[in-house]
């Protein structure tokens, strides 16, 4: 983060890489500025005293929702692959992968 609490182009570029979206420098600058605006309003939230307050991830009190270990019909492969941009040998084809699975 820049000293003024705003976002630098580099901050935005890092976030864009995390989100895996190609953005132009113009877009990076635009979003850096707009994010900063939202974050300034968010600062109001950040400033609140929430000592001892439990976070709510979810509005429901539900627990232990499960299903039985019983097979259900799978999709038809032809129908599945028909939606794919590229297919080979009944599998989804993608360009060579640079990074490794982690």
């Amino acid at each position: 983060m820049a000293d003024d609490g705003g976002l630098t182009r580099d901050d935005a570029a890092y976030v864009a890489r995390l989100a895996r979206i190609d953005l132009t420098d113009e877009e990076l600058d635009l979003y850096a500025g707009q994010l900063a605006t939202v974050l300034r309003h968010a600062a109001q939230v950040a400033a609140l005293d929430t000592e001892g307050v439990e976070p709510t991830a979810h509005p429901l009190p539900l627990r232990n929702v499960t299903r039985p270990d019983e097979p259900r019909p799978c999709l038809d492969r032809a129908e599945v692959l028909a939606q794919a941009p590229a297919v080979e040998d009944g599998r989804f084809r993608v360009p060579p992968i640079l990074g490794e699975a982690l």
Partner: peptide, 30 residues
């Protein structure tokens, strides 16, 4: 959509989770 993905990715990214997402969850409780 790009704007919101950027905002959300930033709010979850290393170092900012507690200040933003975590804190917002507590405000949700309030």
């Amino acid at each position: 959509v790009k704007r919101r993905i950027m905002l959300g990715t930033y709010a979850l990214s290393a170092g900012y989770y507690e200040a933003y997402y975590g804190q917002a969850q507590k405000v949700r409780t309030l």
